[in-house]
Structure formats: structure tokens, C-alpha cells
């Protein structure tokens, strides 16, 4: 098991290298930061000076080598706008994004799994039809439309929740949650729809299995059969789709943080791209890819716990 984890981690090294190259090139594609820093009326000479200071006049290969070298030493570089170390910027902004992610995933699971179970139990009957219709809606409504609808509903027409902003957890669970419920919900619905569909499909497969008949022949209650015997057997695809959801969260978080004015990593990224602040862009994307790789590993490891037939050696 430990050997497996180590091997998986080693296997991610090439992935990380490829990601680093792509991130590096993408950040360059954002455009020349020197002209942004220098302002509209700058002379060519001033721009050249800035390019020289940032090392942008060096060949790409040299720039990449320098950047990799410092990354390898744990140095993500310094923002070319605020002169703050990128690591420090990330630490400042990670709390709200992490909170948003946790609330979103919890909401998605709480909405998705019971709906999926209900749909499977009442397959092709009214509850199933309604839930699957809502799931299609959850897929097709863009996140920002949903966000504005929720704001309109629960913050303006019926003002029970704040419109925007973020309160750190340190100032109390309720204020923290109050600020995160609407953005979390807006973000969670699409994942809840995904989880519900997967749960339904996986559970339908399992409910047709012989061992469900065995469980019923034993005289168990239908709810014991479904929630204990069947759901556990269906958990691997469900865990997979939850993991994918977490990994996909990043894109949605950028939109939601903007709509709800949450000072998180998404906002940091958007601002950095607008300013072509490439050390920040590179740092944040690298962080996200690291998290992505880690989550994938955790999902795979969860299989051994969910399904005893899976063994990693």
C-alpha cells in the first residue's frame, strides 16, 4: 500500500513537468507584461528596460530554466505588480476558496446522493422523472445565471442571506456559512446533478444483482437493503464522480468568486491574467494542478476502502 502510494507519487513527476511547461507557455501567451507595467505612454526604451529587469529579454529556454530552478527550491517567485511573494499571495487567498470548495462539495453530496437514490428506488415513476428533469436543468443552466437567480431570490427579494462578500471562519461559523451558502449552492447544483445521475445509474445496476435478492430474502427493511447493501456496493463510481467534481471545481470557482466578490484564488487568477502577472498565474495554476493530482490519488486510494476487491500492490 505504502509502496503503491510512493510509486504513484513518483509517477506524477512527468505529469508535473508537462504541466509546468504548459503553464509557463500559457503565461507567456497572456501577452507582454512589460507594456502593461510601463503604461500607455511609455517609450520603447522604458519597456525594454522593464523587460530586462524581469528577465523577459532572455531566450525562453533560459527563462524556463530559471523558473524551474526556483520552483524546485520552493520559490514561486514574486508578483511583478505588487512585489509580494506569490506564495504569500496564495496563502492569503486560499482560505475563502477552500471554504467555498468544502461547502460546495458537501452541498453537492447532500443533494446529489439522496436524489439519486430516490430516483433509483422509484425508477421510471414520478420522483425519478422529476429528479432527472431537475438534473438536466442543473446541467444546462450556466453557473452565473444560477448565481444571479439565487441572489435575486434569497438576498434581494427575500433578503435572508448576504448578497456578496466573505467572512472568515474565525469570526463564527454562521456568518461564514451565511456568506458561502449562495455561492456554494450556485456552484453545487451542477455537481449535484452529476452525482445524482451517477448514483441512480450505479444503484440501478446494483439493485438488479442477485445479492440484493439475498438481502431481501433475509428479511431486511427496504431502507437497509438500499442504503447499506446497495449503496456501499455502488460507491466506487459515485466516489469517482465526486472526485472529478472536486477537480472541476476550479473553473466554476473563478466565476463564482467574481460574482459574489469572494477574495479567493479564483479572483487572484483573474486579476493576475488581466495584468499579465505571470509569476502569479504560474504559481496558482501549478498549485491547482498539484491539488488535482493529489485528489486523483486520494480517489484511487478510496477504492480500497470502498471495495474490498480492489487491492494495490
Amino acid at each position: 500500500m505504502l509502496g503503491y502510494v510512493l510509486r504513484r507519487l513518483v509517477a506524477t513527476i512527468p505529469v508535473v513537468i508537462v504541466v509546468a511547461v504548459v503553464v509557463f507557455l500559457l503565461a507567456r501567451l497572456a501577452g507582454d507584461p512589460a507594456s502593461v507595467i510601463a503604461g500607455e505612454n511609455a517609450t520603447a526604451e522604458q519597456i525594454a528596460q522593464i523587460r530586462n529587469r524581469l528577465g523577459l529579454d532572455q531566450p525562453l529556454l533560459v527563462q524556463f530554466a530559471r523558473w524551474s530552478w526556483s520552483i524546485a527550491h520552493g520559490d514561486l517567485g514574486v508578483s511583478i505588480f505588487t512585489n509580494t511573494p506569490v506564495a504569500q499571495l496564495i496563502v492569503q487567498r486560499i482560505g475563502p476558496t477552500f471554504s467555498l470548495a468544502v461547502v460546495t462539495i458537501v452541498l453537492a453530496i447532500l443533494l446529489g446522493i439522496p436524489s439519486g437514490v430516490l430516483a433509483a428506488v422509484f425508477v421510471r415513476r414520478v420522483p425519478d422523472r422529476v429528479i432527472m428533469m431537475l438534473a438536466v436543468a442543473g446541467f444546462s443552466i450556466p453557473i452565473f445565471v444560477l448565481a444571479y437567480l439565487l441572489i435575486l431570490g434569497f438576498a434581494i427579494s427575500w433578503p435572508i442571506l448576504p448578497v456578496q462578500g466573505y467572512t472568515p471562519l474565525a469570526r463564527g461559523v454562521l456568518p461564514w456559512l451565511g456568506n458561502l451558502i449562495l455561492p456554494g449552492l450556485a456552484l453545487a447544483l451542477v455537481y449535484a446533478a452529476l452525482i445524482a445521475r451517477t448514483t441512480r445509474a450505479a444503484l440501478l445496476d446494483v439493485l438488479a444483482e442477485d445479492y440484493i435478492r439475498t438481502a431481501r430474502a433475509k428479511g431486511l427493511l427496504p431502507r437497509e437493503v438500499v442504503w447499506l447493501h446497495a449503496l456501499k456496493a455502488a460507491s466506487v463510481p459515485i466516489a469517482t464522480v465526486i472526485g472529478i467534481g472536486i477537480a472541476l471545481l476550479v473553473g466554476g470557482a473563478v466565476v463564482i468568486e467574481t460574482v459574489f466578490a469572494i477574495p479567493g484564488l479564483g479572483r487572484l487568477t483573474v486579476d493576475a491574467i488581466a495584468r499579465r502577472d505571470f509569476p502569479v498565474i504560474q504559481g496558482v495554476i501549478l498549485l491547482f494542478s498539484g491539488i488535482y493530482v493529489l485528489i486523483n490519488l486520494l480517489i484511487d486510494l478510496s477504492y480500497t476502502w470502498l471495495d474490498p476487491r480492489v487491492r494495490f500492490t
Binding site: E209, D210, Y211, I212, R213, T214, L228, A233, P308, R309
Partner: peptide, 9 residues
């Protein structure tokens, strides 16, 4: 083979 739930002891 199929009458016992694979994920329960």
C-alpha cells in the same frame, strides 16, 4: 458468486 454482496464482510 453473485448472491453475496462483494463489499460486505
Amino acid at each position: 458468486m453473485t448472491s453475496l454482496n462483494p463489499v460486505l464482510t
